[in-house]
């Protein structure tokens, strides 16, 4: 079943074409990776799907509904959540409070929200950070808090933007394992933007390659890593890394 459809999306910032008639279909339970060099339009695509930006052309369909004119909070209550590329913590809240903010979305009362929050903390494995203030945490920890608060909204589709940046190779492996587990447990559909090739290749079932706003390739991780157009796009920038890791 198709849960997300991006149809012919174009977005311009002044003269710069950030996305040029992009199409993308995501089925329920799928994990789709989106890769591409800096400025390829990955985060812009996420911003359009979650309602932070309005496309110049084209439509976004989520669970068969046109969400173009919807604001982010409404899209969120439809069952879409997102971890931001640059973490956006709530500095004056504790980790526990942060996650409770998320879990109130689908809870009728405080006790239900607390239960859901606790569950989300356990799933992500940061129960020990519970009483710490967000402003005391480092970036990798904050990324996990973002993951937990997103999960607490009990989403059906989760968008993850560069969660593996700055992690060591062993930590990347752990993160892939953790996300697979969470996905399994909650029956999520995942959309992943990532620079760390090892991470996307390990997690995704299908990969989309964006290059200066154009979709230049789509397919399984294996076929993508052999696609000549992808190699060309990445030459000089990411080619070396891809060779190293794939």
């Amino acid at each position: 079943m198709k849960v997300l459809e991006v149809r012919d999306i174009t977005k311009k910032f002044g003269a710069l074409v950030a996305l040029n008639s992009i199409n993308l279909n995501v089925d329920e339970g799928e994990t789709v990776g989106i890769i591409g060099p800096n400025g390829a339009g990955k985060t812009t695509l996420f911003n359009i799907i979650t309602g932070f930006l309005k496309p110049d052309k084209g439509t976004v369909w989520i669970f068969g509904r046109n969400v173009n004119s919807w604001r982010p909070h409404k899209i969120a209550s439809l069952g879409v959540s997102r971890c931001f590329q640059i973490v956006k913590p709530f500095p004056s809240l504790t980790v526990w409070e942060t996650v409770v903010v998320g879990s109130y979305l689908k809870s009728r009362d405080a006790s239900e929200a607390h239960e859901a929050a606790l569950e989300a903390l356990k799933l992500v494995g940061i129960t020990d950070l519970k009483d710490r203030l967000s402003r005391e945490l480092n970036i990798p920890q904050l990324k996990l808090v973002e993951l937990a608060r997103s999960i607490a909204t009990r989403p059906k589709i989760l968008l993850i933007d560069e969660i593996a940046a700055g992690l060591t190779p062993t930590e990347v492996d752990k993160m892939v394992k953790k996300l697979k587990e969470i996905k399994e447990r909650l029956g999520l559909t995942l959309l992943v933007v990532e620079h760390v090739m090892k991470f996307v290749m390990g997690l995704s079932e299908r990969i989309i390659v964006l290059h200066y706003g154009e979709k230049i390739a789509e397919g399984s991780p294996e076929s993508i890593s052999k696609d000549p157009r992808v190699i060309e796009a990445y030459l000089g920038t990411k080619w070396a890394e891809m060779r190293e890791w794939s």
């Binding site: 982010p72 909070h73 959540s81 931001f84 956006k88 913590p89 809240l93 973002e146 997103s150 909204t153």
Partner: peptide, 10 residues
């Protein structure tokens, strides 16, 4: 604290 994040949490 962070309006966009709050929005994304519904």
């Amino acid at each position: 604290d962070e309006e966009e994040a709050a929005e994304m949490l519904g």
